[in-house]
Design a protein around this nucleic acid. Structure first.
Length: 421
DNA sequence: TCTGGGGTCCTTTTCCTT
DNA sequence: TCTGAAGGAAAAGGACCC
């Protein structure tokens, strides 16, 4: 018997994907605690110090919202390395922005207040705004502390006004739960939603439809596209391509000839607004790492003791991270950045999985021997990759390497050798 | 004059084995 | 035993993102 067609003849729901971006997240988190700084230029980032150490002792006992503005440290007095994580909109007016060196920012806006990131509070509010969203729309993809993609397609009401009604509800709920604002773009796919969320910042909503490509997407600078970074943009400009529309105007084969099979084809697709990546709600980590930039450059010989202590500490921290999150890995690597900002990495894949700080330290120490150490160092990092869940890791096979598979560097067998640091 | 700390993914090179 | 090709895995580097 032939199946009876469903009585509902309406078309399948249009794919509606939202990108949500918290407004100046790290800075806004500070403003919740110090509302007296509202409207002032402020940057977050740089130092490792605690706020209490920075605010003068006279005000240590005061409730945070009563600490006088004059007690806060200014960018002009900032010393040391580091970059800006977030700048308030008042500070952005002076040309200060994310990823800018502190010293450069100090020249542009010396009067800006500077505070370190309060990671605990940021994480708490991050969890809070994401759980608020999930209560309304369950299909959410994490894109870091302050960003998510949300699939509106099958959420009741997700299609109304192209998604604007649901976006407004989410904005309002987040504001209620956290006191923070966000910007949302809703579009047929992730690529365009991401672009759209920037159209109306802060606290804005932008709705983009399939047929808005030419008017709203093509005029944008190519660099705005997620995936076109400084290098690709530079190359595009050299070829006379400045906007997304300029890319769309080129033949697919021409793009492939200049950017390779993979990137060229990708650029062609995105310039025509095509992107069918799903909203991914779960993913497993691939690696975990710890790295640190030193207050001053250190030398492998002259500062051996100090470097050794830092190195050991990084290894222990990675081990703790793995254990706390329940993972083990078998590729152990190091990363060095020299004073000229050039980077070197070395790694080694073991036959067994580990999350043990001492083992990590041993193998990482062997990696260290394979890298030049003449130049002073500004950064040292330790990474563990090829992760699996600790409870799913294959049991160690008596330590004998598989026949015919000799490790390239016999690090495990020579682990007794003292490492350089 | 500077340029953090986590990550992911991709490409190229190098090494190993057959 | 040597030589070369092929293919895979691991290593290294780099672009990019938040």
């Amino acid at each position: 018997m032939p199946a009876v067609p469903p009585p509902d003849s309406s078309k399948p729901p249009l794919r509606r994907i939202a990108h949500l971006d918290m407004d100046a997240f790290f800075a806004s988190v500070e403003l919740l605690r110090y509302p007296q700084l509202m409207g002032l230029p402020m940057v977050i980032g740089g130092g490792r110090r605690k706020v209490d150490e920075i605010l003068s002792r006279d005000h240590a006992g005061l409730p945070s919202h009563e600490v006088p503005v004059a007690a806060f440290p200014l960018l002009r007095d900032y010393v040391g390395r580091g970059v800006i994580t977030t700048a308030t909109y008042a500070a952005r007016q002076f040309g200060v922005g994310s990823a800018m060196g502190m010293m450069k920012a100090a020249r542009l806006c010396p009067q800006a207040i500077v505070l370190p990131v309060d990671f605990d509070e940021v994480r708490r509010l991050s969890r809070l705004f994401k759980s608020t969203i999930r209560e309304i729309a369950p299909v959410v993809e994490d894109r870091g502390v302050d960003e998510v993609y949300i699939d509106f397609t099958d959420v009741p009401g997700g299609q109304r006004e192209g998604g604007r009604v649901l976006a407004r509800l989410i904005q309002k709920s987040i504001l209620q739960a956290t006191g923070l604002t966000c910007s949302i773009g809703v579009a047929p796919n992730k690529l365009i939603a991401k672009l759209a969320s920037e159209f109306n910042k802060p606290n804005g909503i932008s709705i983009v439809h399939e047929n808005d490509l030419e008017s709203k997407i093509w005029p944008l600078a190519a660099r705005k596209v997620n995936g076109i970074g400084p290098k690709a943009d530079e190359k595009l400009k050299g070829l006379g391509i400045h906007t997304v529309g300029d890319i769309a105007a080129r033949e697919r084969d021409w793009l492939i000839a200049h950017f390779g099979k993979s990137s060229g084809a990708w650029m062609h697709e995105i310039s025509w607004g095509r992107d069918n990546r799903p909203v991914v709600t779960e993913s497993e980590p691939v690696s975990m790492s710890r790295e640190t930039t030193f207050e001053r450059d250190l030398h492998a010989v002259r500062d051996r003791a100090e470097l050794g202590a830092i190195f050991t500490h990084l290894c222990e921290k990675v081990g703790e991270d793995l254990q706390r999150k329940g993972y083990v890995g078998k590729t152990i690597g190091i990363k060095l950045r020299y004073d000229d900002f050039k980077t070197a990495t070395r790694d080694h894949t073991m036959s067994v999985f580990t999350a043990d700080g001492r083992t990590i330290r041993q193998i990482a120490g062997q990696c260290l021997k394979r890298v030049p150490l003449e130049r002073p160092l500004r950064l040292l990092g330790v990474r563990v990759g090829t992760l699996v869940r600790a409870d799913e890791a294959p049991a160690p096979t008596s330590g004998v390497a598989a026949p015919g598979k000799r490790p390239r560097v016999d690090a495990e067998a020579t682990a007794i050798t003292p490492s350089l640091f």
